[in-house]
Amino acid sequence: MNNLLFISFEESFFIIFIAIIIFGPKKIPEIARGLGEGIRFLKKAKKKIEDEIKW
Rank of each mutant, 00 (worst) to 15 (best):
N2S: 15
N2W: 14
N3T: 09
L4V: 05
L4I: 06
L5F: 12
F6K: 13
F6V: 03
F6L: 12
I7M: 13
I7R: 10
S8C: 01
F9L: 12
F9P: 15
F9Q: 13
F9K: 11
E11D: 11
E11M: 08
E11T: 15
E11Q: 15
S12A: 14
S12H: 13
S12C: 09
S12F: 12
S12E: 15
F13K: 14
F13T: 15
F14K: 15
F14S: 14
F14P: 01
I15K: 08
I15A: 12
I15L: 12
I16G: 14
I16F: 11
I16M: 15
F17R: 13
F17V: 06
I18N: 00
I18T: 06
I18A: 09
A19V: 12
I20K: 11
I20N: 10
I20D: 09
I21P: 02
I22R: 08
I22G: 02
F23P: 03
F23G: 10
P25I: 11
P25V: 14
K26N: 08
K26P: 00
K27F: 07
K27G: 00
K27V: 07
K27N: 10
K27P: 01
I28N: 02
I28H: 01
I28Y: 02
P29A: 05
E30I: 08
E30L: 09
E30D: 11
I31T: 05
I31N: 04
A32W: 01
A32H: 01
A32K: 02
A32P: 00
R33G: 05
R33E: 13
R33C: 05
G34F: 06
G34V: 03
L35T: 00
L35R: 00
L35A: 08
E37P: 03
E37S: 08
G38H: 10
G38E: 12
I39A: 04
I39H: 01
I39S: 02
R40C: 02
R40W: 01
F41P: 01
F41W: 11
F41D: 04
F41R: 09
L42S: 05
L42I: 04
K43S: 08
K43P: 00
K43V: 05
K44S: 12
K44Y: 07
K44D: 09
K44Q: 07
A45E: 09
A45I: 04
K46W: 04
K47F: 05
K47W: 03
K47P: 00
K47L: 06
K48G: 08
K48R: 14
I49N: 04
E50F: 06
E50V: 11
E50D: 07
D51C: 01
D51H: 06
D51G: 03
E52H: 11
E52A: 10
I53L: 14
K54L: 04
K54R: 14
K54F: 06
W55H: 11
W55F: 08
W55D: 04
